[in-house]
Design a protein around this nucleic acid. Structure first.
Lengths: 138, 138
DNA sequence: ATGGTTTTGGTACTTTAGTATGAGCTTCGA
DNA sequence: TCGAAGCTCATACTAAAGTACCAAAACCAT
């Protein structure tokens, strides 16, 4: 929002500046005035593109980020989240146990807790829920 | 590409038209000329936004589409793909059997075939592979 | 119509996944 | 320092998931 205000302020200033240019052009005849108008048009044309691009960049960078707040809200611990990530990669409990250097029993405990906290019956459903909740970066 | 050419042609026409407007404004004094310039600036400002938005829409609609060719290349049949979609929703074999009105045995057969064709050991891995291959719309 | 593919289904079996319960250990804030 | 919370692990189950192999319809193109 602050940036939007700043950009529009800059726009107004640019507009006023172009008014001055327009006046100078006014004294120097038709042809240079047409060039001046063309310059003004092009400048604002690219300003429009620039602002639009900036606005869309924000939207993009907002969506695929992992929502840390929701992880806390769901009461998911760091270790449980690590397990969740490995699940989403398609690993089995045994494989996850190896990559995290713990026993398979531990992983099973974490998975069971995850299923409760994510309100899922299976690990595949947990993946879907996590994606919906923007907890996992797809 | 055709659209781009068309848009730029329209831009040039609009520019010529605004030159005429500029000349009329030239005869009616300073104030109306400033307004004319402002109008020109605003018009091109929004034209820039519009063109940029159109260009980005194309990019977006290109990426998240399901790649039908790859499905064929992998030898995945329609029915098998249906099962794949249900798997990605987090359903169990029994649930998939109900939604597709067949027996659980049939689903197991489809799943086994899918795992081979997707080179996966588990259904969770199959989901990941399918997403990587752009076979599933995330 | 005949052969290839798809879809369907079954049996029998092995392997993962998931639940329930209990328990020892660490960490960290009140 | 005391308890709550998190991490760890085990046992003993039940329930899904997955494999292997077979086989009968259905569908589709030559």
């Amino acid at each position: 929002m602050k940036k939007t205000i700043f950009v529009f302020s800059a726009l107004i200033i640019a507009l006023l500046f172009l008014f001055k240019l327009g006046k100078y052009a006014y004294f120097s005849g038709d042809i240079s005035m047409e060039i001046g108008i063309a310059v003004i048009a092009l400048v604002f044309f690219f300003i429009g593109i620039y602002i639009n691009k900036k606005a869309l960049q924000k939207k993009k960078s907002e969506s695929p980020a992992v929502d840390v707040k929701k992880i806390e809200q769901l009461g998911i611990s760091k270790r449980e989240y690590e397990v969740l990530v490995e699940i989403s990669k398609g690993l089995s409990n045994k494989e996850i146990a190896h990559t995290l250097f713990v026993s398979e029993s531990t992983i099973k405990t974490h998975v069971s807790n995850l299923l409760v906290k994510l309100d899922a019956k299976r690990r595949t459903q947990a993946i879907q829920r996590a994606i919906d909740l923007q907890i996992l970066s797809v």
